[in-house]
Design a protein around this nucleic acid. Structure first.
Lengths: 340, 340
DNA sequence: CGGCCCATTTTGAACGATCAGATTTGAAAC
DNA sequence: GTTTCAAATCTGATCGTTCAAAATGGGCCG
């Protein structure tokens, strides 16, 4: 097991092809510098021997690993991570196209361990970081910024406009899509179940709904507030459904809240889609399982953008002028298919 | 941004401490070879300068990266990955203790791309792999085995007893725990909702329930079969609940199936826990959200074991004699809290 | 035919760490 | 004061790649 497919080095390829190391290197990186017949010959040998440049040697020389770190949050429920997982997946898939790869890490201790980030860079384990689940007051962004460690965040950094290395989803646009979809589907009243006022993300999503309702010519529509857990969601759903009544719909700030509404509706014997329309947010496993419509985030695009961002920073580019918002789309499932 | 906290090398530490490179190296790796006063002096300098050995240089020299690859399955629903995500998390957390880190990758193409595994090893990107979601006939295990690439799998490789580098969960023990718990809690009839016969994992779990029922002195108990989706689960749950009746319980092969039972019970107005007991399997986000008891897998322990396994293989140890089974435990939630 | 220029290819050095073997140091023994 | 030996420390070589600069080769012009 020790001689795992003994590695082929550039020297062996060079010898076999009757050229120097540098010509082999050029064949891969600067083919235009190599005469076509030589190029072909070297390429053939590379193929035959199955040569792959050593990542370690390249890293040592270039002082770049090509790796991007991503912290998985151990604390917090599986639910908290409902978005994080599909996102790592998207990152891992897209990384190849950027010539890099993703290194995940998670600390057992609850504290963020900022120094861990710095250590990983100093030890040349990763070049940069992608952050998710950034929250107001997140210490990581200022820390990385000040330590001059390149990073890009999925999620706005609300309180600090000077930190611009982020991409986020236009939540207001998402709830607007959901609301307009419900109105168009024929639900006469479209209420909203959201989080308590004051959270930036929550306010953003609520505004999308509110404006869509207004634009459609309605004065006001029922609205309720709940925390991000099923019990709270279901409790709030009761009075809300009373106001909305059969034939209406509810747009929610998250899939979890939507599930609460769905439970309450089911308890009343209302059929999903026909008697009540429900739209969630995030298109997580919950909405997939429960089968209700949800606003879905373009994770692949976001991953792609963030990777491009850190790489341009690594290449010496200045920070972007401002963050980028991506438009979510709506995944329509049975929950809003009104058989009018 | 280019001069990211210019890296400190071993040479700089050596000069600052008035010793040679090797002494600095020994300070970190073989402290017993260094005279105490020297040790202390060098350590102090390391601290002051914030020296961290270059991972790239170490890898080049040792021909080991210390990285372990893990494939995230892009195809397949978020549900398929319900276990995979907490598992990457566990791996990422435990990796530190093994002096390694996890590199995730995912292919956009549907095909497994076995050659990708080999490339990653040849290019010295990772030393070994951890596999999850292995299934009967999974081409990756024989491939890696034959290519002499170290790996360890989460999940038995049923058809091939000679492949022993795996750890798995004792499914039968899990369903047995669930069944005994339900009987002890006072549910008179404990039925089972599982997958169609023939799947190794499914048969294993069913056996655990069957034996527990038998051991408790019951001749036979109701049983039904469903596919791994909510519609199928709910359809199968109907007749099953008819047989079981109020006051009974259902042990399920997965959380998804359990959710189907829960839905059906709710539709009948049965209160979870009091009128009907439900146990899921996997302790995924589903059971967390829906609040029912579930069999939980010791992912941290498994991750730890698998990492130890690949590292011992890397160190030249022979393959293990046989795979290892870990005993799951039961997370009790309201769904089986009988207010007898 | 000699010289010059450009395209192509080769050589030497460096990236930062660790192993093996050489060298120095210090203390004990005579 | 020398010798001896072990402990502590240092030096040289190496891992595989790529950059910079040097060397080679061919074609063209005078």
């Amino acid at each position: 097991m020790s001689d795992v497919a003994s590695r082929v080095t550039i020297r062996e390829v060079a010898d076999a092809a009757g050229v120097s190391r540098q010509t082999v290197s050029n064949t891969l990186i600067h083919p235009e510098r190599v005469r076509p017949p030589t190029l072909e010959r070297v390429r053939k040998v590379i193929d035959e021997l199955g040569y792959r440049p050593s990542n370690a040697a390249q890293s040592l020389r270039s002082q770049r690993t090509g790796a991007v770190g991503f912290e998985l949050n151990a604390t917090g429920s599986a639910l908290q991570n409902a978005v994080a997982f599909p996102f790592v997946l998207a990152l891992s898939e897209r990384a190849v196209a950027h010539g890099s790869h993703i290194v995940t890490f998670g600390t057992q201790s609850a504290r963020p361990a900022l120094s861990g980030y710095e250590d990983m860079v100093r030890s040349l384990l990763v070049d940069a970081f992608i952050l998710a689940d950034t929250h107001a007051g997140d210490p990581r962004l200022p820390f990385l910024d000040q330590a001059r460690i390149p990073y890009a965040a999925f999620g706005r950094f609300w309180g600090r406009p000077e930190l611009t290395s982020w991409a986020d989803v236009d939540g207001a646009h998402g709830t607007r899509l959901a609301t307009e979809h419900c109105l168009a589907a024929g639900y006469d009243v479209v209420g909203y179940l959201g989080w308590p006022d004051g959270s930036a993300v929550g306010d953003d999503r609520r505004n999308g709904w509110a404006r869509a309702v207004e634009r459609a010519g309605h004065r006001s529509m029922p609205r309720a507030i709940a925390e991000q857990d099923l019990t709270s969601a279901r409790a709030a759903a009761g009075p809300l459904l009373d106001q909305i009544g059969r034939g209406g719909a509810v747009v929610c700030a998250s899939d979890m809240l939507a599930l609460g509404v769905e439970r309450e509706a089911a308890a009343r014997g209302w059929t999903l889609g026909r008697d009540i329309g429900i739209c969630g947010f995030d298109d997580s496993a919950i909405s997939e399982i429960a089968g209700f419509s949800s606003v879905t985030q373009p994770l692949q695009e976001i991953a792609d953008h963030l990777l491009a961002l850190v790489h341009s920073r690594l290449a010496g580019a200045p920070p972007p002028v401002e963050g980028v918002l991506f438009r979510p789309t709506l995944v329509v499932r049975g929950s809003t298919a009104r058989a009018s």
